[in-house]
Structure formats: structure tokens, C-alpha cells
Design a protein around this nucleic acid. Structure first.
Lengths: 338, 338
DNA sequence: ACTCGTCTTTGAATCGTTTCATTTGTTACG
DNA sequence: CGTAACAAATGAAACGATTCAAAGACGAGT
């Protein structure tokens, strides 16, 4: 009994046909009570475990959904992934997570892998331009849903968050506090960041006398944020912005660390500070950080739903769902509005 | 063309036998240049993609390795996972990651799933007692390696880090700074935490006049750390410990936040602070945090290596590899030793 | 022309499951 | 007693790749 028993072994042991064993597993109602018991007993005795490869081969498709993210270490993506997994589990599917690490060759590798696995569908937060590959996938009957990226609905479905709106919300909030000289910290070369900046600029344009200065950070990490923060501390007080909007929470936490460490600048009195993503760490920062919350669970859940839709309609109809981000006010931007 | 082509379709299209197509894919040297080219051309034209299920069925085993972790959100585990993935990729395997979320029913679910997939082996950071299940797996020819948990080498292999040594290192370092009244923050109900505490107590026992107070935290999060920190601030200064050792970095960061926010206690002058894990965030904390580094990449890599060993020797020989943690000194414990 | 050896190619058998048209068994009713 | 109606069980065919014994092609040597 060292190696795994097959359905045939079970059939022999229980003295029934293989089809009957299969029925016990898949359509218990078609089998009489007596036989069912006998088969189940044999299964237990032989320690039989279904061979998924054989199942899939016969079925022509796996019960697996591929998910390719830019960075599993990023709380935003791990949260989306978890939600997707939960939603998939409810549908009897499993999610395989691949981490592209923003590298398009790794991305391609996972796409190939998932195709060989005959996944039910693919959720992807693309690194570069994957339009053509997605066309190919569609032709081969693999529905694809873009995650955190707006899709051309002729091509495929997508779930994303309105980054421009998020940027607008953040800047508007700072302006409502009476702040006029704003600073935006981030790397606008990233599409999502550029949109957030654009939204912020729109809000600023609506208020006369308001301005926003762009501080291009070297990356989106805590460390990059501290560098920006240090440069702010070095400025003459009157040249410092009255409010800072960072394109993600890690940056904001870095800026906060610089400012609070030097103790010359108070948050929020001297500089109001807001981040983006509302990661778990934001609430427990030295000064609890205001942020723009993205509905990560909804993203993950909806991605799976859209995939299911595509499977139903044969991948002919696509839909782009855009969520609205939400302002979360905490101490780092506390203060009476003007 | 809409659905995926099979090897048979390729054979027909290229006017060769199926076996030849298979050889082109698996043993290119056996095939003549001319035929190879023709087959490859057909593959490209038909957009043929190998069906992994069929391969696995024939092979009897998949090229997949299952990894079950306690929490993918935890940087420690995501780092181990990444290292394991890289090592597995080099061997031509793929790692499937399952998140048990410290829930033994989810853990069991993934174990079942991985068995159905006929994984090459299983890496697991167990929630509860999985000894029996591992015995079953071994009987069925699925080698298992415990991760971050010492194994009985009669049963299976394991990779872990000497937690007691780590605790000893941390406490010793604090004592070397001249601090005598130490506090340990953590939840000793967790095995790893208990070992770290034990190590700390051993170090304390070696120094006359030294003591360590145990502060049981409600969890291992930043928030839990802040609660402990607040309770320290509320104490009369002379009743505060001179040094604090937290069983993980998140806790330490929480403690740090409380202490620095209140500004009555200075780190490291009044209280020296050290954490555990050396997560990326530690270096960029308000006061850069000293910590005990665990060799996460080595853990992941070695886990895969041990699995390969077990596959070679048929799962008969097991080995327990124990790594030694490393002290990383930063500003939070700076100061001349006595 | 024939044989031997080497290099290619062939195609049937196999892996373990699901499916489904058939067969077998049972009960009810005229 | 015959048979219709239904339930349960059967087992061969299929899924798509790999394997391997056998056949085929070709050139060299005699």
C-alpha cells in the first residue's frame, strides 16, 4: 500500500465497476446506500486519493485560476489575492499566485505556465503591454481579467480603482483644511501614480491661490519617503509646503518619520500628511495616518466574478468595473476645516 | 483554431507521428533537423501548448511542490516563500503556496488539495500537530519538510532557526550594554516565542543582578506592541525596564511608537529596544531598530534541497537543518558597552 | 547484391478518471 | 404470469501526452 491506490483498485476491492466508484464520488445519489457504504469503506481502507491530473485531462479544464501580481510582498496585492482566493474557493476553484516582481519575463513565464495548466482564467496586474498576449489567450478560450488597470472592453474585462478620483479626494481634503501650498510625493512614471497626481492637480485648479509642487521620489518605499522628508526639513520653514500628499502609504510613513524625528515640524499643525492605500500600518503610525482606501477585497472578489461571467458568455462580452476610493481621515490631517 | 490544439493535431499538420512530435519537445537530439523544423513550424502555426494534466498523468507525478505557511502577509513567510520559489524554479519545479492562516482546517484542506495534485513534496509550517498526517504522506510517497519547526528525524526532515539561541543573543546584547532590568514582550503560548524567551532567560541567569520580566502581549502585531508600550510609559520611571526585547519586529515597532510619541522616554538612552525577524521595516523605523535576523532565504532554499534529497533516497533518510540567527545592531540599542 | 549498423520514425499501449449507452435487477400493475 | 417502468450497476471509450519495441531508411563494407 506504499503507493497510491487508483479508482480501479478501489473497484476491485469493493467488488464493483470503476464507473460505480466514480459515481460514488461525483453523483452519490445515483448509487444505492449499500454499495455506497462498501465503496467508501474501500476508499478509506486503501487510502485512495483522487488523481487530479486524470480528472483534469478528462474534463479538459482545470479548477484553477491563475493570478499574476506585481509584488506579493505589497500589502495591497496580498489583500487582493486573499479576497480572490476566498471568492474562488466558494466557487470550488483554487487560485495559483505568481509574482512577476515587475519583470516582464517572469510575467511571461507565468503566463506560459498557466496556459499549460489549462487554467479556467487569468487575473493579471500587468507589467507592460500585454494586449496581444491577451488576444491570444482569448482565442484559445482563456478569459482574462485585468486587475488594477483599466481595460479596453473590446479586449477583456477589468477591475480597477479610479486613481484620479483618489488623488482628487486627497488633495480636496487638504484644501478643505485651509492648506494652499501642497506637495505631491511619488514616482509619476508609474501609471497609477500619474493618475493620482492628475486628480490632485484638478482639485488644486478649482481653488484660487492653491498650488501643488511635485516631488519625484526614488521609488515607493519607506526609505524613499524619508529622503523626501529630510529634504523638506532642510528647507526654510516658509518654503515648506503646508500639506503633503504621498502616492502610497510607505512613502508617507517615511516622510512622517523624517519630520517627527527632527521635531521641528509638527504633524498635522505645520504640515498635514496623507497617504494612499490605507495599509494596516497606517492606523498604527506614530501619528495615525490619513489615507485613501482602496477596496481591495472588492477588487479580488469582483475579479473572480467577472471571470465567471466571461466563462458563462464564452468570453464574448467584457466589462470594466471601476471602484471609487474612499477618504479615511485620521490624526495626520486633523484640524478644523476653514 | 479557437480551442487548443493537441499533439495529435500537430502531428497531422506536420505529417509525422505523434511520437515524433513528443520527441521534438522532449528529446530534440533524436529528431533530424528537417523534421524538427517542420514540427516546430506546425507548433507555432497551430499555437500548440502542452497539456500539463496529460503529462502529469503519464508521469505519475507533477512538477509541483506544495508550501503551506501560517500567514503570507507576514514578511518572514513571504520571504521564505520567495526563496523556495526561486530554488524550485532552478530545479524546474513550481511552488504552490497555501495560506493556512493558523487555522488547522484550512491547513488540512490544502494538504488534501496538494495530495490530489500529486505534488512532488510538501513544505509546511504546521499549525498544530501534523505528525500523523505526515506519516500517512510518507507512506504514500510524498516527502515532507517542516519549515520553521524542528522535526523528529525519524519522521521527516526540517529546516528551522535556533530560536533559543536568538533569544539568548538578544538578551546577551542588552546585558552587554550594561542593562540589568530587562523585559520580554510576546506571547509565549506560541512555541517559537517560548523558545526565544527561554534563551533570554538563560542569558539573564548568567549575569548576577540581572532580571527579566515577561509582558504577555495580546498578539504579535504593531497594535499589541503599542498597548504594551503605553503601559510602560504609565509606570513610574524607576519601575520601567532598562531594556526591552520583543519577540517580533512588529511588536517592537509598536512599543517604539508609544515610547517616542510620549517623548518622556528616550530610545536607546532610557530604554534600549530590540526586536526579532529583521523585517525590511526595522531599518527605516523612527529609531532604526536592532533585531535578530533569521536567514529566510537560506530557510526556503534549504527546504527545497532537503526535499530533493528525500526524493533521491526515497524518503528513507531525514535530516534536520538548524540555522543560527544573527544579531543586527542599530540605533535602538546603540551605546558603549559597560 | 547482400548484410550489418546507425540513425529516424512509427504507432500502439499506458496513465486514472469521467461519461454514457447498455445491461441487469426490482417492483408494480394489468 | 407477463411486461412496463424505473433504479442501479456495468464497462468500453475518451481525454492528451510519453514511452518503447519495432520497423524503416540509408550508407558502408564485402
Amino acid at each position: 500500500m506504499s503507493q497510491t491506490a487508483s479508482i480501479k483498485d478501489v473497484a476491485t476491492h469493493a467488488q464493483v465497476a470503476v464507473g460505480t466508484v466514480s459515481n460514488v464520488l461525483n453523483y452519490p445519489d445515483r448509487v444505492s446506500q449499500r454499495t455506497k457504504e462498501r465503496v467508501l469503506k474501500s476508499i478509506a481502507e486503501l487510502g485512495f486519493v483522487r488523481n487530479d491530473a486524470a480528472r483534469q485531462l478528462r474534463a479538459g479544464q482545470s479548477r484553477t485560476i491563475g493570478l499574476i501580481v506585481l509584488d506579493v510582498g505589497n500589502p495591497f496585492f496580498s489583500s487582493v489575492a486573499r479576497a480572490a482566493e476566498d471568492a474562488a474557493t466558494a466557487l470550488g476553484s483554487v487560485v495559483l499566485v505568481g509574482d512577476s516582481g515587475q519583470d516582464s519575463s517572469r510575467e511571461a513565464h507565468y503566463m506560459d505556465l498557466f496556459q499549460e495548466q489549462r487554467v479556467q482564467g487569468l487575473l493579471i496586474s500587468p507589467v507592460g503591454d500585454v494586449g496581444e498576449r491577451i488576444d491570444t489567450l482569448r482565442e484559445r478560450g482563456v478569459p482574462t481579467v485585468l486587475v488594477d488597470e483599466l481595460a479596453d472592453t473590446d479586449r477583456c474585462s477589468s477591475v480597477s480603482v479610479d486613481d484620479q478620483e483618489g488623488g482628487y479626494l486627497a488633495a480636496k481634503h487638504l484644501l478643505d483644511l485651509g492648506r494652499r501650498r501642497l506637495a505631491f510625493v511619488g514616482t509619476p512614471s508609474i501609471r497609477q501614480v500619474a493618475s493620482r497626481l492628475k486628480g490632485a492637480q484638478r482639485a488644486v485648479a478649482e481653488v484660487s491661490g492653491a498650488s501643488v509642487e511635485v516631488l519625484d521620489s526614488a521609488g515607493q518605499t519607506v526609505l524613499a519617503g524619508r529622503q523626501v522628508g529630510n529634504s523638506l526639513v532642510e528647507r526654510a520653514p516658509e518654503r515648506r509646503p503646508e500639506a503633503v500628499f504621498c502616492s502610497n502609504d510607505l512613502l508617507a510613513l517615511g516622510v512622517m518619520q523624517s519630520l517627527t524625528m527632527l521635531r521641528t515640524v509638527k504633524i498635522p499643525e505645520d504640515i498635514a500628511l496623507i497617504g494612499y492605500d490605507d495599509i494596516d500600518f497606517a492606523i498604527s503610525a506614530v501619528v495615525p495616518l490619513s489615507s485613501i482606501r482602496q477596496p481591495t477585497e472588492a477588487l479580488g472578489r469582483t475579479a473572480i466574478e467577472l471571470l465567471a461571467e466571461e466563462q458563462d458568455n464564452g468570453g464574448t462580452k467584457h466589462r470594466a468595473v471601476v471602484f471609487t476610493p474612499e477618504l479615511v481621515v485620521r490624526q495626520s490631517t486633523a484640524g478644523a476645516p476653514n
